[in-house]
């Protein structure tokens, strides 16, 4: 076999072997969260490259090498699933670098991180002032996890005492003009509904590149033809606007009428509508 053909054969073979190995080891290998995964990831790659290009090497030796670095971490993984001690040794523990807003210099030194590197990691987490950090941990994989002080955390609905809204995930029901019935079903819709919605927006299914349904059943689409302007769903804002209009109308009627009874009726209904609007507006906005 000529050398170039050998390289092709070995290349394809090892691509296949590596693919299988990572499939078996799963997502955790790809994440390289722990020392073991990091090391085995590098080594498997090197072995594959070495055997592929170094034609004097035996293919089977290469495959055995890869297998060892796949099987051993696999068993260590299983062991560490069951034992915290094994886990701590193999995967390592996080090191606290900032506590109560103060940098722990000793821990920093122990991990051999310089102040510049700490600042760099913090900047990676969008923190430019150490003062903003309450607690920071250097994880086993070298990433920094940061807990900001309460004052510096992003505002949430809870902070504003807004009623809680539980929004479900959107479903992608059309990709590349192809309808996914399974997704459609899990969104609680069917093809007839989709057709109706598309007709409403005056587009054909062939023109839809991507279509998503949100939890409230609104369809948003992206078209192949980018010249066509797709209207954003207006049902909810329109409803809210209508409610506001009606509420104003009712108040106006209450002022305009001369009958005392009618005045009361209008005022009471205006109030009712206002209350209903207050309840609905968090759901109808956005």
């Amino acid at each position: 076999m000529p050398g170039w053909l050998e390289v092709v054969v070995r290349g394809v073979l090892f691509l296949f072997v590596l693919f299988l190995t990572t499939k078996i080891l799963g997502k955790k290998q790809l994440s390289e969260l722990s020392f073991f995964e990091y090391v085995s990831g590098i080594t498997i790659g090197s072995i594959a490259a070495e055997v592929m290009m170094g034609l004097e090497n035996n293919i089977w030796h290469g495959i055995i090498g890869v297998a060892i670095f796949a099987v051993l971490p696999f068993f260590v993984e299983i062991l560490s699933l069951h034992s915290k001690t094994v886990r701590d040794v193999v995967e390592g523990k996080g090191t606290v670098l900032i506590k109560d807003g103060k940098i722990l210099e000793d821990n920093l030194k122990k991990e051999k991180y310089t102040t510049d590197e700490l600042l760099q990691l913090l900047r990676g987490r969008d923190v430019f002032k150490v003062d903003e950090v309450e607690y920071a941990v250097l994880e086993a994989d070298g990433k920094l996890s940061v807990l900001l002080k309460k004052d510096n955390r992003p505002l949430t609905r809870k902070d504003l005492d807004l009623p809680s809204i539980n929004e479900k995930e959107p479903h992608t029901i059309v990709m590349d003009g192809e309808i996914f019935d399974e997704k459609l079903a899990s969104a609680g819709k069917n093809r007839a509904w989709l057709k109706q919605e598309l007709d409403k927006q005056n587009v054909t299914i062939e023109n839809v590149f991507l279509g998503q349904v949100d939890a409230s059943g609104q369809l948003t689409i992206d078209l192949y033809d980018d010249k066509i302007e797709v209207p954003t769903p207006q049902d909810k804002p329109l409803l809210l606007a209508n409610m506001k209009k009606c509420q104003a109308d009712l108040e106006l009627f209450a002022l305009a009428t001369e009958s005392e009874k009618a005045k009361r009726l209008y005022a009471a209904n205006a109030k009712k509508l206002q209350e209903s609007m207050d309840v609905l507006s968090p759901h109808l906005k956005g």
Binding site: K168, A215, G217, L239, C246
Partner: peptide
Amino acid sequence: ATIKSIEAGLSSLAINTNA
């Protein structure tokens, strides 16, 4: 008429939502 349309709008939202 607007009130009726609000009612209909709410009704359709209620039907369409999954939550």
